[in-house]
Write a protein that binds this DNA or RNA. Structure first.
Lengths: 222, 222
DNA sequence: GCCATTTTGTTCTCGCGTTCACAAACTTCT
DNA sequence: AGAAGTTTGTGAACGCGAGAACAAAATGGC
């Protein structure tokens, strides 16, 4: 009954934990599909590829959803995390820049299955307008304002070349978008009230190359 | 002349710094294209979107490539970072899984321009064999061993569905690949001598949705 | 009903990374 | 040449996150 803490507002989840919650969700989904109904922190941690102490600490920020001596109810915990993350809602999303990457993102089933609905595909190139990708028609970039206004879109995805990314971001912010996922290899300048997240496809590859390089030079020295 | 430290082997660069070096490289490339020859840490930090003190500390792990009272020579610093990262070399790469994402990755110009050369595209689906993507023909997955052996490939990219990712990873390791970039939404189990890096396209979106959710519920409470 | 066992939730400690602040070093102006 | 002004490189303080270790709570056997 009084399980909820008296100071709901104080529940500030560390950023590092928030970043791992999607991983736990994914692991729980897999467990659920395999028919597992109960799992220990040890088991779930192994499935998510993290330390079990870290997992328990992460979950403790959300509340006490486990049972000592038993473990966690897979579906219950899954729902609680999903609710906390906003994954039980439906999030309309617009994708700007329908090149190779934009195509791939529009077709990516992982978005839809996690509550993201692609409501519009926009591109500045006239040649692409009218093309249907993943069941959605590609429209002119200038339709951005109207679409964001009508559909209440809060999240925008940028998959354009680096040169146009800042301009697209400015227009998005102007239209009312407050969260941007940027796939263009560029640093975006936006107001403090807009959240920007960046995915750099080649960055990870460069880090791997660095470690390969190091392995090689270390063997030379030895 | 004796600028190099006496203990080259001790130069261990923190992982957090390594992760930012590609960002600096990108910013330096932009500056160079714009005709800038000299830049201060303040200027470069702004272009890279980080704190200037952090930038200076990061660069200090590589050596003393700046001049006090002046700043950094853009092209010189760029070369030094590239050399340290292994970006002056050519890295052969194989991509497995030529669906939407694999297509996009094969066509991504950012790989080639950073020293990565896609030497093979592999897919388990017969229907796709023979198709030419980005100038490279799609071949059967079973060719993996031969290609890795012939071309001395060290880095592999997985762009398959989650279900086949672990199997692909096992085969890659078996063939001699020591670094894997995984785009499949799955935790890979590999030996400790293999480096695995993961890019989750929907994870970042989920984190953004969390913050949107939080903004909304906070306003309700207020 | 009590004890042994299991597993969660939490406290504590340690180490890494970020940032501040300043000395060292270089340039330019007088 | 010396002083004033810049800007780098780094020592030191601080804060956050990771992981070990343990207390609290639930189950099951006797």
């Amino acid at each position: 009954m009084t399980a909820r803490t008296s100071h709901d507002a104080a529940r500030e989840i560390p950023e590092a934990t928030v970043a791992r919650l999607p991983v736990y969700l994914r692991a729980l989904a897999t467990l659920s599909e395999d028919g597992t109904t109960i799992c220990s922190s040890e088991h779930l941690a192994a499935a998510a590829g993290v330390n079990s102490a870290k997992l328990r600490k992460d979950l403790s920020y959300l509340g006490s959803y486990g049972t000592r001596g038993v473990g966690y109810d897979v579906d219950y915990l899954r729902y609680q995390i999903a609710r906390e993350m906003g994954a039980t809602r439906d999030w309309p999303v617009v994708i700007v820049g329908i090149g190779n990457l934009g195509h791939a993102l529009a077709n990516y089933s992982g978005f839809r299955s996690r509550g993201f609905r692609v409501v519009a595909l926009l591109d500045a190139d006239d040649q692409r307008h009218g093309e249907v990708v993943a069941g959605v028609v590609v429209r002119p970039f200038s339709d951005l304002h109207a679409i964001v206004g009508e559909q209440g879109v809060a999240i925008g995805v940028i998959a354009t070349p680096a040169a146009s990314a800042q301009d697209v971001a400015d227009q998005m912010v102007d239209a009312g978008i407050t969260s941007i996922l940027n796939f263009a290899p560029t640093v975006l300048n936006v107001g403090a009230d807009v959240a920007v997240s960046k995915v750099d496809l080649s960055k990870e590859l460069q880090v791997l190359a660095y470690h390969e390089q190091r392995k090689a030079t270390q063997q030379e020295t030895a």
